[in-house]
Amino acid sequence: MTQPIFLVGPMGAGKSTIGKLLAAQLGLPFADSDKVLEDRTGADIPWIFDVEGEAGFRRRESEVLAELCNGETQVVATGGGIVLMPENRTLLKGQGFVVYLRASLDQLVERTSKNSNRPLLQVEDPRAKLAEILQQREAFYAEVADLVCDTDHCTPKQAAQMVADRLQGEDVG
């Protein structure tokens, strides 16, 4: 394997958690694009949203993705909205192997309900917002995916194992 492995999917799908486990299992470095963005800017994502709006955040997110498409073989957990920009979808498809971590709306609601670090869910009806986000992004996740992994009925460790097994059976590189 000689290219990055990008994990895409909605918030709550398990990209960061599964990504860390997958990287450890494959003996690869791990990067979380949201964490890289926060480290580079010295500000957390909710603050960036407050000050620059979603458009400013998306611009910064695209810059970080371009940096992470440096050819290094690593596992990269991306932000849930990374697929919204056409240029990001092009980068993901052209620069790495993309795994779409898919989860049901019920699972996403449950997994995100205790995390206040999600600016898009700071609304009166987070479930409705998640449903809207899924409807808006589902086709984009599928478009860029080389592999789809359903995460509803498995632990993060099981999901990481499933992805690792599939990667080892694929011609990734």
Rank of each mutant, 00 (worst) to 15 (best):
I5P: 00
I5Y: 04
L7T: 05
P10K: 11
M11Y: 08
A13P: 10
K15D: 08
K20C: 11
L21G: 03
A23S: 03
P29K: 09
F30I: 08
A31S: 12
D39G: 06
T41H: 14
W47L: 14
E61H: 06
E61N: 07
E63Y: 11
V64I: 15
V64H: 08
A66F: 05
L68N: 09
C69Y: 00
T73K: 11
T73E: 13
V76Q: 05
A77K: 10
A77E: 07
G81K: 12
M85C: 09
E87M: 01
L91G: 04
G94C: 02
G94Q: 15
V99D: 10
Y100T: 12
L101T: 10
L101E: 03
S104C: 01
Q107M: 15
V109I: 08
E110A: 15
T112K: 05
T112N: 04
N117T: 09
P119M: 09
P119E: 11
Q122E: 03
P126V: 03
P126N: 01
P126A: 00
A128Q: 04
A131T: 02
L134I: 04
Q135V: 00
Q136L: 10
E138K: 11
F140N: 14
F140R: 14
D146N: 11
D146W: 03
D146G: 12
D150A: 14
A160G: 03
Q161W: 06
Q161I: 01
Q168T: 08
Q168F: 03
D171L: 14
G173V: 12
